[in-house]
Computed example of a mutant assay.
Amino acid sequence: MSGHGSPLAQPLQRPSAGRIAVYAGLLLLGALTGLAGALVQAGWFPGGLLLALAGAAGLFLGGARAARGRGGAVAPAAGWMIAVIVCTAGRPEGDYLFGAGGGSYLFLLGGMALAVICATLAFGRQPVGPDVRLGK
């Protein structure tokens, strides 16, 4: 064997400090986007909902491009999800950040759907070398 096998057959490498910093930054940006979207989506319905979802989708796809892989979409999606779940929890006083309206559910479900779509459609690693094309 020449060693030009599948990328999955290659040994795992430890991520660099720069890549970890990029993912941590994307996680933080995702949490901030989720918090901002939670506040905006109900304030200017339906424009705020569309603005919040467009911002989340832009961050997810931008993260995938910045990190050159699916992990760049997953990191901000995880931060977004954590922030939104924390915002949905009620406080002991009985206060809620989200109302029980349809816009809140559209924000939650739409954001989750966008996270899955962006992570699935993000640019994955492409194989390199002479074995990439069939028939050669």
Rank of each mutant, 00 (worst) to 15 (best):
M1W: 06
W44L: 14
M81P: 00
G5D: 00
P130A: 06
A17R: 05
G3M: 05
R125E: 06
T88C: 08
A78K: 03
F123Q: 08
A64Y: 07
T120A: 15
V132I: 01
A56L: 10
G101Q: 08
L106G: 15
S2K: 15
G55R: 07
G5S: 03
A115R: 01
C118L: 10
G94T: 06
V84R: 04
L106D: 13
Q126Y: 01
P15E: 07
A24L: 14
G103D: 00
Y105I: 11
A113P: 11
G103R: 01
G25R: 02
L109E: 15
L61P: 06
A64I: 05
V40H: 08
Y23Q: 01
A78H: 03
F98G: 06
G90T: 02
L53T: 10
T120W: 14
R133L: 09
R91K: 08
L108M: 11
R14K: 07
A57N: 13
V116T: 10
V84L: 04
A24Y: 10
A100N: 11
L134P: 02
M1V: 13
L12W: 10
L50I: 11
G34I: 03
S104R: 08
V116Y: 13
P7M: 15
G103W: 01
L32M: 05
A89P: 02
A100D: 13
V74G: 14
P15M: 10
E93H: 13
G55S: 12
L51C: 12
A21I: 04
A24R: 12
L49V: 12
G79D: 00
V74D: 12
G102R: 02
L26R: 07
V86S: 09
S16D: 03
Q126D: 00
G34W: 03
A31W: 04
G63F: 07
G135R: 12
V132D: 01
I117T: 14
